[in-house]
């Protein structure tokens, strides 16, 4: 009781800084608490355990002829697998680094030069580039062409022209034997 009376009497005295401090400290703790409480809600929107559960896809390459491409699905994304021709390998290797938007040597993008394996998603805004089927437009660099906003990829899946910022991504994969790969 006496405390209350004292505080009221000294309302404009040095006590005010103590009150200000208490108010600010309480507010800060409250704000941190609210921020922490937000996290479960935000994180609930991230990929769930079942989505995250790693899946790997095995592919038998023996049936793919030279110059042919197939598309397989890995983690809900299309993966382009292309059995490249010697000419394609040569043009990919010969491309001068200065001409590349996202410089990367062709040899860094393949385990075996004849097999180009990459995630078939345009790095601009996520469309699936054309060039897998016979008769598809393949762009100015004879690789892939994204119809959405006009990105041109070369025979190594590297971006050469258009709005995409990066080369098409290479998924983690390994050869389990001469003609079989495991993606993921």
């Amino acid at each position: 009781m006496t405390d209350t009376a004292t505080t009221a009497a000294q309302a404009s005295g040095p006590d005010e800084t103590r009150r200000d401090f208490l108010l600010m400290a309480t507010s800060a703790v409250g704000a941190v608490g609210v921020a922490l409480a937000c996290w479960p809600f935000i994180d609930s929107m991230n990929p769930s355990a079942d989505v995250l559960a790693l899946s790997s896809t095995g592919v038998d390459l023996s049936a793919i002829e030279e110059g042919q491409s197939i598309t397989v699905v890995w983690r809900g994304k299309p993966v382009f697998i292309r059995h490249r021709t010697p000419e394609e390998i040569e043009t990919a290797g010969a491309a001068p680094m200065d001409d590349l938007i996202d410089p990367q040597a062709d040899t860094d993008r393949v385990l075996k030069p004849e097999w180009l394996i990459m995630i078939g998603i345009c790095t601009h805004l996520g469309c699936i580039p054309l060039g897998q089927k016979v008769g598809d437009p393949r762009g100015d660099f004879d690789g892939w062409f994204c119809p959405c906003h006009g990105s041109h990829y070369d025979t190594s899946g590297r971006i050469r022209k258009g709005p995409a910022p990066r080369n098409m991504a290479i998924p983690p994969y390994e050869f389990t034997d001469e003609t079989t790969i495991k993606i993921g």
Partner: peptide, 27 residues
Amino acid sequence: ATVITNLFSAVPVFGEAIVTWLWGGFS
């Protein structure tokens, strides 16, 4: 949905994480 959510992948550094968060998955 794919193109518009991918707009956020243009954000420096956090782009990919934001898009994965928006999707709740990898696509």
